[in-house]
Computed example of a mutant assay.
Amino acid sequence: MTLLRAEALSTAFDHAAASYDRLVAANPGYHTHLRRSARRLGLAHDGRGLRLLDLGCGTGASTAALVRAAPQARIVAVDASAGMLARARAKSWSGRVSFVHAPAEQLAGAGVTGPFDAVFAAYLFRNVGDLDALLRAVHRLLAPGGRLGVHEYTLSGRTAHRAVWRLVSGGLVRPAGTLCGDRSLYRHLSDSVAAFDTAEQFARRMARQGFTGVRTLPVPGWQTGIVHTFLASAGPVRAEARRGAAR
């Protein structure tokens, strides 16, 4: 199992940016599941008056999911890959969305500071070095009662779910990446799922780093037991944040 370090991973994403949207579009449910996780944040009143952080926005799929869930919110979208961010910026956005080039671990240096009413992180945490440090940093960025939503490949403890991932990874993910000339990136992405916390472990990790009310919700379809939404609060949950959190 070979995982790329931060600088090499950003470079690999830069190279893969041109084909990334086409590849993920071939994944049944990819965009639908992102939208479901964004809705689960339960952002009331179309997000009016809220400030949101999309951490690890990639080419903007997670940003689009947040916009749909909270069209009136102000959204700061951040990514470490210049190539992926360029693809995101090239898409059509309202003036409420802004993009920043920065690693998730170095937000302050890029001028990204809190408080945020919610942070959404899709497919990010398994690609960072120090999970606990980043969770603590995210906690500090959130306003009291602010919510964290994590959408991530986190296998359940069931052998069947791990077997499905091995089949999909070996039969589809790696070959597709190789055909696009990005073999090392897609090898990393497939291996990182197996190396990452299980869903139960990641939920416990969030609680250890000060998040309260941690919930783990599955996604439907073939990714049940493979992709989960994690929801948590940085303190007392405000009434307006509760509505719709379990949809």
Rank of each mutant, 00 (worst) to 15 (best):
L43S: 05
V100Y: 09
P28I: 10
L231P: 07
L66V: 06
L34A: 15
A163S: 08
E105F: 04
Y186A: 07
L43A: 04
W93K: 15
A203S: 13
V119N: 01
D130G: 15
F230I: 02
R5I: 03
A8D: 08
L167F: 15
P175V: 05
S62A: 12
V168H: 10
M84P: 13
A6L: 08
A86M: 12
L135Y: 02
P71R: 08
L85C: 09
R215T: 02
L43F: 08
V150M: 02
R5V: 03
F116H: 06
A61Y: 01
A239Q: 07
S62C: 06
S37W: 13
A203V: 07
Y153R: 00
T216P: 00
L231T: 02
G170V: 02
A61R: 00
R247A: 13
F116L: 06
G171M: 08
G56H: 01
P236H: 09
H31T: 14
A108P: 11
A69I: 05
P236G: 04
F211R: 07
R204H: 09
A108V: 15
T229A: 03
V97R: 04
R40I: 10
D182G: 05
A176M: 11
H101D: 00
V164I: 09
R36M: 04
S190V: 00
G49F: 09
L172Q: 04
I226V: 15
M84G: 14
T212Q: 00
L34D: 09
S37T: 14
A18M: 12
R187Q: 13
A8I: 07
A73F: 06
R204Y: 06
H161Q: 13
G56R: 02
L179H: 01
L141W: 04
R51G: 04
R126W: 02
L185D: 06
T59Y: 08
L231N: 02
D79R: 03
G146Q: 02
V214G: 04
H15S: 13
R87K: 08
F125A: 01
A176F: 02
R158D: 09
A137V: 01
T59I: 03
H151C: 13
R166Y: 03
G146I: 00
Y30S: 03
S192P: 04
V67N: 05
A26C: 11
D46Y: 05
R51T: 10
P236D: 10
R158N: 06
L217Q: 11
S169I: 06
T63W: 03
Y123F: 15
R87W: 04
R243Q: 11
R140A: 14
A246E: 13
A143N: 09
G111D: 11
